[in-house]
Design a protein around this nucleic acid. Sequence first.
DNA 1: ACCTGAACACCGTTCAAGT
DNA 2: ACCTGAACACCGTTCAAGT
Lengths: 187, 187
Amino acid sequence: MAGGPTTNSESLRADSARVRARMLRAARERVAAGDLDLPMNAVAKAAGVGVGTVYRHFPTRHALLESLAAERFALLVQAAEQAVTCPDVAVGLARLLRAALEHQRGDPALAVVLSASDNACQETTELVRALAEAVDRLLERAREAGAIRPEITAEDVRALFCGLQRTVQVGGDTELYIDILLRGIRP
Amino acid sequence: MAGGPTTNSESLRADSARVRARMLRAARERVAAGDLDLPMNAVAKAAGVGVGTVYRHFPTRHALLESLAAERFALLVQAAEQAVTCPDVAVGLARLLRAALEHQRGDPALAVVLSASDNACQETTELVRALAEAVDRLLERAREAGAIRPEITAEDVRALFCGLQRTVQVGGDTELYIDILLRGIRP
DNA sequence: ACCTGAACACCGTTCAAGT
DNA sequence: ACCTGAACACCGTTCAAGT
């Protein structure tokens, strides 16, 4: 017969991956509908699995949020890396700020994950590191060009991302707030 | 016997006020302990009243938060009014920013109320109006002195308060973030 | 008038039982 | 190995019954 332990384990894994994808899809639908609560029971029901399965894959709600945010987080990292290669470093900074805003607006889970002080998933830790690395390179270039206050760190930039997102959320004038921040970080 | 409808109604009101104070004290203790959840049942139990009584006084949790925040909110309004009378308008702006941060740090309920888009209590609406009025006067003085971008409104300042608070919460360098904002709002 | 607290619905979380 | 879902504890909210 085709099938031994390997095939069996693979089919288990394949099934597990399918179940995981179903849960993420269900959770994403809720978030897209504006509900960041993500009740585990509700996610389970929407995904057609038992609650225990949700907990097996995502030990905490924050772990679930991180998994949801990962995709957009990777796009933000990409944007940061592209900003580094921007000929005009000031333009790079401006693009990065816009990208940070846009991705947080596009996925509220990302806004939560970016302002969290620690991560549940290895994947997130990796993304945080990659973002910090790209931002560090951008800051270094900006310092050399005299385009930024030299004491600003990648951690500060992350905090400023979160604050800017909140400012935009509370107030109305996105362009003004971006501009205030861009001017404020100049030397 | 002493007592007619008036006395009776007054004693009811007095009792009601006492009960209300007990609930607010209980809620404040929970918030001070770092718990912004404020479960209505828990507040009721801690205050030694029935849940229905909590709901009678505070129709929603946000109404409860507003009542909690009112005291600090009034202090913030005072700070804004003092900032207006500051001989050096730039110093006034800096003091106001610091006061906004300090009061939000001192009462997390205020941070929530400041970033809420609408209010449950009349009292809060009044405080919001008073703050906007003081800030408007300060902005007017700052514009005349050429100390601020002229397009910034009191609403923008409220949004910037909220964003600054978040930045500080996520990052570590309060002084840097205050300074970035102060520079950013200059013309 | 105002307060109480039982009642119902819902969510978090665990864990014995299934496949 | 992995999944299920009953079970228990807790919270939101309402409303009939008390004073």
